[in-house]
Nucleic acid binder design. Sequence first.
DNA 1: CCCACCGAGTTCCCTCAAGGAACTTAGCTG
DNA 2: CAGCTAAGTTCCTTGAGGGAACTCGGTGGG
Lengths: 156, 156
Amino acid sequence: MQRTRFGDMPCSIARTWNVIGEPWSPLILRDIYVGVRRFDDLQASLGISRKVLAERLAWLVDQQVLDRHPYTNRPTRHEYVLTPRGAELCDALLVLAGWGDRWLAGEDGPPALFRHRSCGEASNVTLHCSHCDQPMTAADVDVLDGPGAPAREETP
Amino acid sequence: MQRTRFGDMPCSIARTWNVIGEPWSPLILRDIYVGVRRFDDLQASLGISRKVLAERLAWLVDQQVLDRHPYTNRPTRHEYVLTPRGAELCDALLVLAGWGDRWLAGEDGPPALFRHRSCGEASNVTLHCSHCDQPMTAADVDVLDGPGAPAREETP
DNA sequence: CCCACCGAGTTCCCTCAAGGAACTTAGCTG
DNA sequence: CAGCTAAGTTCCTTGAGGGAACTCGGTGGG
């Protein structure tokens, strides 16, 4: 929850940022993605303030990125799991991680490897076009107004 | 610059977040990517405080994501352009935008379309494995320690 | 020559969120 | 009953975000 609300902007990047743009949010998702699912475990793993963690989790549940469900009654205890929405966000994390691996890893090399289960190799993600299946990066793209674009001034 | 420094964590997501995780950073990159390159234009386009914009631009230049170079002397004026590092970050923005398009666009549809220049179609990005070229998402991945992982305790 | 103007910041002040530590609550467990 | 544990919640301090006004160097007009 930053000062300016990004969620109302006519821009999918801004809206996405509104959901996961606060500090800690992507790291919380990362931890849940790799299997750290409980409040105290998350707090210990991240070193985050309990207050902020509680706020973030509530927000992410509210945004339908996470689901809070009990893993035991007697006593009732909850854990946080990814929703389909949240799982797709992890794809974006994979790309961010790839960028960090490429540009920020330093001499030691990347701190984590991603093994593609179906081919068994540690690899990185590359971006392809959903239409022609060929590689596609931001440099190969023209940005056009979409149907949800704000109305424009008539040609001046 | 958030309170906790993410840049020192042994995690490429955290390190990447340290570079672009503050509010506004991805929107600044987006604007520069689509051609808004000057201070006042960015300020007007984003509605950001001039103070924060100046801070962010300086930080992004410092992180080698942007380059500040003069587009005219007499009087000296500067514009901000993407470095190769920054251009690759825009790939990640494309993925974030895709997620926003899919989950947050609402009835009006996405506010922007991305046309793949080589095939001419408006499309989205999908993630593929850099090794086997097949589709690859976070759900198909095992996360392993990499060479830059912190040393672990001996097996307890 | 003087004044207004423009781009690109910088300074000042206020508010609100991040961080930390301590406290709470509900239900086991010995 | 005392203590423990998971999962928050409360309180306080500090510092970043936001806005508005100010600065600075150069330019162009009268």
